[in-house]
């Protein structure tokens, strides 16, 4: 049952990602990205990470992608022109992708030996357990990350203001 669902939504995610690249209209690409993110959320859910799955949809599909579609809607960009890409991309594109995937897979597999793996039919990690880890064991890194994001927001606001001090 878990495997069937995994295959279906992994296919959805892949199809959405390919469609994202192939579409010419930016709004279609943005919608494909939403499909990818929603499918990823289902994959997280299959692995028992219920909170992560919902956060994925609320934050990425719900908030960040709304911003993307807003920008596309307001700029009203037309269709892209189709090109055949650069020569460099053609020659080293595929080998580079293969190398990158190999490095990622090797790293993840090695990390798996240290920290253990989860499989599809494992139980659900409840939000109570998750919050114990986040707010007790890993409190300092967690809070530092949130401060980091806050600094990024403030920086963006400071850069976006046109005249210094006023406005």
């Amino acid at each position: 049952m878990h495997l069937v669902l995994f295959l279906i939504f992994a296919l959805f995610a892949l199809a959405g990602a390919v469609n994202l690249l192939l579409q010419k209209h930016p709004i279609n690409s943005a919608l494909s990205l939403i499909v990818v993110m929603a499918s990823l959320a289902v994959l997280y859910l299959l692995l028992g990470a219920e909170f992560l799955a919902m956060a994925q949809i609320i934050v990425y599909a719900g908030a960040i992608m709304v911003l993307f579609t807003f920008v596309v809607m307001l700029l009203n960009e037309g269709r892209e022109e189709k090109t055949w890409g650069s020569k460099t991309a053609k020659t080293i594109g595929l080998p580079a992708v293969v190398v990158l995937l190999a490095v990622l897979a090797a790293t993840i597999l090695r990390a798996g030996r240290h920290y253990g793996m989860i499989s599809l039919s494992d139980g659900v990690t409840t939000i109570q357990e998750l919050s114990k880890v986040l707010f007790r064991d890993l409190l300092l890194p967690f809070e530092l990350t949130s401060v980091l994001i806050l600094i990024a927001i403030l920086g963006a606001v400071a850069l976006a203001r046109k005249d210094n001090g006023e406005a």
Binding site: I27, I34, E50, F51, M54, A55, I57, I58, A61, G62, A63, V66, T69, F70, M73, V124, T126, I127
Partner: peptide, 25 residues
């Protein structure tokens, strides 16, 4: 009956924005 029923509700609300945004555009 879900452990995270409340989050699912918030999820659905956040996706519902698309219906309105896309219809207008």
């Amino acid at each position: 009956d879900l452990n995270i029923g409340l989050l699912v509700l918030l999820c659905v609300t956040s996706i519902g924005v698309y219906g309105i945004a896309l219809s207008g555009w």
